[in-house]
Simulated scan of single mutants.
Amino acid sequence: MHSLHDPLAQIRAINQTAAFNRWCNMEVISAEPGKVEIAMPWRPEAGQYAGFLHAGLVGALIDTACGFAAATVVGRVLASHYSVNCLRPAVGERFIARARVVKPGKTQVFTACELYAQAGGAEKLVATGETLLSVVTGEVA
């Protein structure tokens, strides 16, 4: 499944295997070696009590985009740590996560991401995040 020749097809295929991503309606917009952009439309089930995108989903979008960016460079990865900075309430019609590999390695990959909310043609930065991913070799126990 890992093909550096067509990262967009590779990441879209991975995205379709994840039931959670399908439930969220996550879509892979673009993918190139070391960079991925994903989107998710707003839906009420994704909101918290005040009607903002739930911080858990903010983290999920950042984690997913970062994992996909790493996968374009090293193949299978698992998150070992991630952090999220919520900068403002995530309110919008659609959310876009743009992730990039900061430093690839043989066993670990460092990535960073910005999450934007789109509404009425405008785009606002709502969160940033970083992940440390472990490269998967062999079976995952």
Rank of each mutant, 00 (worst) to 15 (best):
residue 28 V to Q: 05
residue 28 V to K: 06
residue 29 I to S: 09
residue 30 S to K: 13
residue 31 A to M: 04
residue 32 E to K: 15
residue 32 E to T: 15
residue 33 P to T: 04
residue 33 P to F: 05
residue 34 G to H: 00
residue 35 K to A: 14
residue 36 V to R: 05
residue 37 E to Q: 15
residue 38 I to D: 01
residue 40 M to N: 07
residue 41 P to G: 03
residue 41 P to K: 05
residue 42 W to R: 14
residue 44 P to Q: 12
residue 45 E to I: 14
residue 47 G to C: 13
residue 48 Q to E: 13
residue 48 Q to I: 12
residue 49 Y to K: 13
residue 54 H to M: 06
residue 57 L to N: 10
residue 57 L to S: 08
residue 57 L to F: 13
residue 60 A to L: 03
residue 60 A to P: 02
residue 61 L to N: 04
residue 61 L to M: 14
residue 63 D to V: 03
residue 65 A to V: 06
residue 66 C to E: 08
residue 67 G to M: 06
residue 68 F to A: 06
residue 70 A to S: 06
residue 70 A to E: 01
residue 72 T to H: 00
residue 75 G to N: 07
residue 76 R to F: 10
residue 77 V to S: 04
residue 77 V to Y: 00
residue 78 L to E: 09
residue 78 L to P: 07
residue 78 L to C: 09
residue 78 L to Q: 09
residue 79 A to K: 01
residue 82 Y to E: 11
residue 85 N to V: 14
residue 85 N to P: 10
residue 86 C to F: 13
residue 88 R to T: 11
residue 88 R to D: 04
residue 88 R to L: 08
residue 89 P to I: 02
residue 89 P to F: 01
residue 91 V to S: 09
residue 91 V to D: 09
residue 92 G to I: 10
residue 92 G to S: 09
residue 93 E to M: 02
residue 95 F to V: 04
residue 96 I to Y: 04
residue 96 I to R: 05
residue 96 I to D: 01
residue 96 I to F: 00
residue 97 A to S: 11
residue 101 V to N: 01
residue 101 V to D: 01
residue 104 P to D: 08
residue 104 P to C: 06
residue 104 P to A: 10
residue 107 T to S: 12
residue 108 Q to D: 09
residue 108 Q to C: 07
residue 108 Q to P: 06
residue 109 V to P: 06
residue 110 F to P: 08
residue 111 T to P: 04
residue 111 T to V: 01
